[in-house]
Simulated scan of single mutants.
Amino acid sequence: MRDEVSEVAFRLFSEQGFDKTTVEQIAAHAGLSRTTFFRYFGTKEELVLGKMNEFGPRLAAALAARPAEERSWEALRRSFDVITESTADEPQPFLNLMRLLNDACALMTRQWEKTQGWHSLLVPEITRRLGGDPESSGDLRAHALVGSAISCLDAATDAWTATGGATPLSELLDQAMGVLVEPVT
Score class of each variant (00 low, 15 high):
Ala9Asp: 12
Phe55Ala: 12
Ala68Cys: 01
Met108Asp: 04
Ala30Leu: 04
Ser151Tyr: 02
Arg66Asp: 01
Arg58Thr: 00
Arg58Trp: 05
Arg78Ala: 06
Ala142Phe: 07
His143Gly: 15
Glu113Pro: 00
Pro124Ala: 04
Ala155Thr: 11
Arg78Leu: 14
Ala9Leu: 11
Val123Arg: 08
Glu45Leu: 03
Val5Lys: 12
Gly117Ala: 09
Ser151Gly: 13
Val181Thr: 14
Gly31Ile: 03
Leu180Met: 15
Leu32Ser: 02
Leu47Tyr: 02
Arg34Pro: 01
Trp118Met: 11
Pro93Arg: 03
Arg71Gly: 10
Arg141Ala: 07
Pro124Gly: 07
Arg99Tyr: 02
Glu182Asn: 08
Phe38Ile: 04
Asp89Met: 08
Glu113Thr: 06
Arg71Gln: 10
Leu32Trp: 08
Ile26Gly: 10
Glu125His: 12
Pro124Leu: 04
Val184Phe: 15
Met177Ser: 10
Ser33Arg: 00
Ala106Asn: 14
Leu107Cys: 01
Ala166Val: 04
Ala106Arg: 15
Val184Ala: 10
Phe80Thr: 09
Phe18His: 07
Lys51Thr: 10
Ala104Cys: 12
Arg99Asn: 09
Gln175Ser: 02
Met1Arg: 14
Gln92Tyr: 08
Cys152Tyr: 00
Gly132Leu: 02
Ala156Tyr: 06
Glu70Ala: 13
Ala27Trp: 06
Ala61Arg: 14
Ala142Met: 03
Arg39Cys: 03
Thr43Leu: 05
Glu125Lys: 14
Gly165Tyr: 07
Ala159Val: 06
Val181Cys: 08
His29Asp: 15
Arg77Cys: 03
Gly17Asp: 05
Ala61Asn: 11
Ser86Lys: 12
Ala68Val: 15
Asp133Val: 02
Ala149Met: 07
Arg77Met: 04
Phe55Met: 10
Thr161Val: 00
Gly42Trp: 09
Leu63Tyr: 09
Thr161Gln: 10
Gly164Ile: 09
Met52Thr: 12
Glu85Asp: 14
Ser86Thr: 10
Ala28Phe: 03
Gly132Asn: 07
Lys51Cys: 03
Glu125Met: 11
Leu122Gly: 00
Tyr40Arg: 13
Ser33Ala: 08
Gln111His: 14
Pro91Trp: 08
Gln92Leu: 12
Leu76Asp: 08
Glu46Leu: 02
Val82Asn: 10
Val48Ser: 09
Asp133Pro: 05
Ser79Thr: 05
Pro57Asp: 05
Ser136Gly: 03
Leu49Ile: 07
Leu101Arg: 11
Val23Gln: 02
Ala62Cys: 03
Thr21Lys: 08
Glu69Trp: 01
Thr43Cys: 03
Asp158Glu: 04
Trp118Tyr: 15
Arg11Ser: 11
Asp81Tyr: 07
Asp139Thr: 07
Val8Arg: 15
Arg128Glu: 11
Glu90Gln: 12
Thr36Ile: 02
Val181Lys: 11
Gly42Ile: 11
Ser14Leu: 04
Leu169Pro: 07
Glu4Leu: 13
Arg128Val: 00
Arg2Thr: 13
Pro168Ala: 09
Thr36Leu: 09
Leu59Cys: 06
Ser79Pro: 06
Glu171Cys: 00
Glu182Gly: 12
Lys20Met: 00
Ala159Glu: 07
Ile150Ser: 09
Thr115Asp: 00
Arg39Phe: 02
Asp158Met: 08
Glu113Val: 01
Gly17Leu: 13
Thr84Cys: 05
Lys114Pro: 01
Tyr40Leu: 12
Ser14Gly: 11
Leu107Asn: 01
Val146Tyr: 06
Gly147Thr: 00
Arg128His: 12
Glu24Gln: 15
Arg66Lys: 09
Gly17Met: 13
Ser170Ile: 09
